[in-house]
Design a protein around this nucleic acid. Structure first.
Lengths: 210, 210
DNA sequence: ATCCGAAGTGGACCATGGGTCCACTTCTGT
DNA sequence: ACAGAAGTGGACCCATGGTCCACTTCGGAT
């Protein structure tokens, strides 16, 4: 079940889990900016050094957690059945994907906010870490790069005359927005899903030029 | 020319200007996170204490600067001629407004990023400041609350059956997005304007339900 | 002109929190 | 059982936002 047992000592894996779990718990009842790395370490019952050793940075930790939460969705998208998976027409896939993302977001608003917070306050120091993280195939781009690629691809396929790349960014921008995240926090995930679907549908159904 | 002379001593006003100007200059050639308050103070030739005395916090400083940059637009919207000002049909006003905002953004990407950065890293300490700022009628909401109100209003007017509030947030979300801000930094303001117009137009022209 | 209280000032100082270091401990393959 | 690799923890470093307050400067009243 753990990412990769081949190269991580048993105790290390245990600690990694403890840290991840502790972070989740903290995230469940505190706002991101109240969660210092020191607190995470304490909650996990390990030293601060261990946390950094495992995850490199605050961003790394949040990223890893996010990756976990999102993996299932990615699999559904690439290998699953339509309309999420391949096979359905792009318009349907896009709408389904937006629904799915909204749902994931609804379950992880706090994490999302925490990731945003972490990335925005990241020190620009050297990338000392070898980025030999478990399943981090695309280290630089965050989790969203997958989403962006998927959305942009579908948009382009469904309506080649669109600036798919930018429109994809526009859609993803919603997930960074404090206002939207607050909304999610109030349990309005389905409302967001509706609006997202509607925007996308409108975009695809609209007439050719302006 | 300065906001309010009635209650601010001449030397204070001079310093305020110096600080604002220094911030602009720094913003012109450095990324937001490289600009510490201490640096701002030094560049303005004043003490750190003065900066905080005048603006309360990093966020306050950026906010004030932003407010300045955006004031003209707000006046055009409330008092100016159509299509930006009142009088034109909402659809036209909205499209014009999005164009205008994109233009303003294009000229102030760095500031925008800096504001975002400041807000996201804000300490949640007590609001010691009396918020007796010059033209800060809506202290809590940031600069965007005006935009949100305007956009939501126009959306609702043009298509009452829409979730105008949320869609307005969705549009504004674009302005927080790092990806979009980067794009602006590459001088693609008009590209953004086009995409924004297109999204909004699609939304308004779309069929009733879905 | 002078005076005096209010307003303003600057920089030492504080607290916080991310990240680094490294002597020490614990695994694990042989 | 051992050796060396892997892992650990918490003292430490340092950048930065923000506070404090003794001191200076204004500017209206006399």
């Amino acid at each position: 079940m753990p990412p990769a047992a081949r190269q991580e000592r048993a105790d290390a894996a245990r600690n990694r889990q403890a840290i991840l779990r502790a972070t989740e718990e903290l995230l469940a009842e505190h706002r991101p900016e109240e969660i210092s790395m020191e607190r995470v370490a304490a909650a996990a019952g390990v030293g601060k050094g261990t946390v950094f050793h495992r995850f490199g940075s605050r961003t790394g930790l949040m990223r890893e957690l996010m990756l976990q939460r999102v993996l299932a969705l990615h699999e559904q998208v690439t290998d699953g059945p339509p309309p999420l998976g391949p096979g359905a027409p792009p318009r349907d896939r896009l709408l389904a994907f937006l629904d799915a993302v909204a749902a994931v977001l609804g379950r992880n608003k706090r994490l999302m906010a925490a990731l945003g917070h972490a990335e925005s306050t990241e020190r620009q120091g050297g990338d000392r870490h070898g980025s030999q993280d478990a399943h981090a195939d695309r280290s630089p781009g965050s989790v969203y790069s997958f989403w962006h690629g998927h959305i942009a691809g579908l948009l382009a396929e469904a309506n080649p005359e669109l600036d798919a790349d930018l429109h994809a960014y526009l859609i993803i921008a919603a997930f960074h927005s404090p206002a939207v995240l607050d909304l999610l926090d109030a349990g309005e995930a389905d409302r967001l899903a509706r609006a997202l679907r509607r925007s996308a549908a409108a975009l695809l159904d609209a007439p050719g030029s302006e």
